[in-house]
């Protein structure tokens, strides 16, 4: 239950793009086509699912105040938390390199579709952000950290997929010239973020007693809502086209 809650929370409520603006650079740069967006999104899910648990372990056994106690009681005083930025980013950069080598060796076809995006990912703020938020939200277990990583990755994937689809459509609409390209993408993202804010009540809205039962229902409703939202956006785009 805890896992499910965190999973959907990290996809919808704390969506990387819409709630915390992480990974915006690649989100804006690589969202011109749906196919490339899917490639990058998949790579982000993968790397987040690997690095967040790994950094959780580092945080738990090396960085936190008193975490070095497993070396012996004389190490209990050490507080290495100021090193977390440098250790996290080093882990991420090495993992990305490692993943690249492994994927190239075992699945050349996957490498060809992901390949060019993998080095980009090391400097994607969503990846480091995942680890830093994992640290500041004090996620309790390794399993939860993995869930958080995968969930955030899927959230980012959904966001880039949606904006890529909208941008493909929006090309046929008549937008005021100065707003074309970047400007309208920002504003559309802002509107999508307002839409995603409505998920905020998802986990807090219910009463304490009703907390257990309707959760699976809520999930279904959300999926439907999401589908509706996408349809609505498409509809709006279509009407724009027709008007044109």
């Amino acid at each position: 239950m805890e896992h499910l809650e965190l999973f959907f929370k990290s996809i919808f409520i704390d969506n990387m793009v819409f709630a915390t603006f992480l990974g915006m650079c690649s989100y804006l740069a690589v969202s011109k086509k749906v196919t490339t967006a899917v490639g990058l999104g998949a790579a982000v899910i993968f790397v987040l699912a690997v690095t967040v648990p790994l950094n959780w372990l580092l945080d738990q056994y090396i960085l936190q105040p008193g975490a070095l106690i497993w070396l012996g009681p004389e190490y209990a005083e050490y507080d290495l938390s100021f090193l977390s930025f440098i250790l996290f980013i080093a882990t991420i950069a090495t993992m990305v390199q490692l993943v690249e080598i492994i994927v190239e060796k075992f699945s050349p076809s996957l490498y060809n579709s992901l390949g060019i995006f993998l080095p980009l990912i090391a400097v994607n703020c969503a990846i480091l952000g995942g680890s830093l938020f994992m640290q500041s939200r004090e996620i309790a277990t390794l399993g939860l950290a993995t869930t958080y990583g995968v969930g955030s990755g899927i959230g980012w994937f959904l966001a880039i997929l949606a904006i890529a689809a909208i941008r493909e459509k929006i090309r046929y609409s008549s937008i005021p010239a100065p707003l074309r390209g970047l400007g309208i993408t920002f504003i559309v993202t802002g509107l999508m973020a307002i839409g995603f804010m409505s998920f905020g009540g998802m986990l807090t809205g219910g009463e304490e007693e009703a907390k257990e039962a309707p959760k699976t229902e809520a999930v279904k409703v959300i999926k439907e809502e999401k589908a509706k939202e996408v349809k609505k956006e498409e509809l709006a785009n279509n009407t724009k086209e027709i008007q044109e």
């Binding site: 819409f18 709630a19 100065p178 707003l179 920002f186 802002g190 509107l191």
Partner: peptide, 16 residues
Amino acid sequence: APMALIVVGIIIWVQR
């Protein structure tokens, strides 16, 4: 949060 995006969008609009 979403308004930040829209404000930046408007700045881009004005600049362009």
